[in-house]
């Protein structure tokens, strides 16, 4: 199912500011377009998150140029692009993970429903409870499987009783499709699982907090094909209830799991479109070059 309703015209807010902003940045890219316009359908009527005029700097170096993008409710948006195109950086902005990097400066509006999460006054702790994240490398805590999943619920005080916590752990593991494999060894360390299981454990850990949005930063890049297939299946199931933004290196994966696909190139959002369209008939030449494998 695809809830995203795309708009044909670019929102006035964005169209006014885009050229001006891009001009002020002195970086000359290979296509040398000072002002650029994202082609396709970057906006959604039923947006869970709306990003406007996002610029990201590492010290003096600009990593993201004026990106505008909506993520619709219960939609899966995939972000693809060559290495260093800024797609991971962009994703990490969505729950302020870039706060942990001192040199990183983020400007622009990030609306989660109607709250600007990039506001310095915004409290990141409840934000991250609403916008969860799954990382590139499986990073289970050196604790038992149970404690890994229960961790988020515990710190956020989601369970009042032990039985509530047990329920949360069980449902999360079930949703992550890991329950049958680990239900007999919940007290074993999370690190004893295989790579794919570890990553599903990390997903279970994330959904145990019942976030509204799940961010996934190349969740399968460290996994073998079978484990990857299992995770992709999982993403598909999760999209019933959650809004998902996923960064991936694999175009096939993007094609398989996402509703819409965003193509990033050298810090710029070149094209956003229905996934099918991006992979069959992209609007932009750069997108086409990328999906046909001319660079990557």
């Amino acid at each position: 199912m695809n809830n995203s309703v795309t708009t044909e015209s670019i929102a006035p807010l964005a169209s006014e500011k885009t050229p001006e902003k891009a001009k002020t940045s002195n970086v000359i890219t290979e296509e040398n377009s000072d002002a650029y316009t994202t082609v396709g359908q970057a906006f959604s009527e039923n947006a869970k998150m709306s990003m406007r005029n996002v610029n990201v700097f590492y010290d003096e170096k600009q990593a993201i140029y004026d990106v505008n993008l909506d993520i619709g409710t219960n939609e899966v948006v995939a972000m693809i692009g060559p290495s260093g195109c800024g797609k991971s950086t962009f994703l990490r902005c969505l729950n302020r993970m870039n706060d942990t990097i001192d040199t990183c400066k983020v400007t622009g509006k990030f609306l989660l429903e109607d709250q600007d999460i990039n506001d310095r006054k915004m409290d990141v702790v409840p934000l991250r409870a609403r916008v969860g994240m799954v990382f590139q490398k499986p990073n289970p805590f050196p604790k038992s499987i149970y404690d890994n999943v229960a961790y988020g619920a515990r710190i956020h005080g989601l369970a009042d009783r032990k039985s509530d916590l047990d329920d949360i752990v069980e449902t999360s593991l079930q949703k992550a499709g890991l329950w049958n494999e680990v239900k007999d060894r919940l007290q074993q360390p999370g690190t004893s699982l295989s790579g794919g299981q570890q990553q599903r454990l990390c997903i279970a850990r994330t959904i145990a907090v019942s976030p509204e949005v799940i961010l996934m930063d190349e969740p399968c890049s460290a996994l073998d094909p079978i484990a990857t297939a299992r995770i992709e299946e999982l993403i598909d199931e999760l999209s019933q209830n959650y809004t998902i933004a996923i960064v991936t290196h694999s175009m096939q994966q993007a094609a398989r799991v996402s509703h819409r696909t965003a193509y990033f190139h050298l810090g710029k959002l070149i094209e956003v479109n229905e996934t099918e369209k991006v992979f069959t008939n992209p609007d932009h030449g750069l997108t086409e070059a990328y999906i046909t494998g001319r660079f990557g």
Binding site: V125, A129, H156, G157, P211
Partner: peptide, 16 residues
């Protein structure tokens, strides 16, 4: 569940 969660989170936030 979303709304419930965030309410619960906010409830304990001060203590945390």
């Amino acid at each position: 569940p979303e709304i419930k969660t965030i309410d619960k989170v906010n409830r304990t936030l001060g203590k945390r």
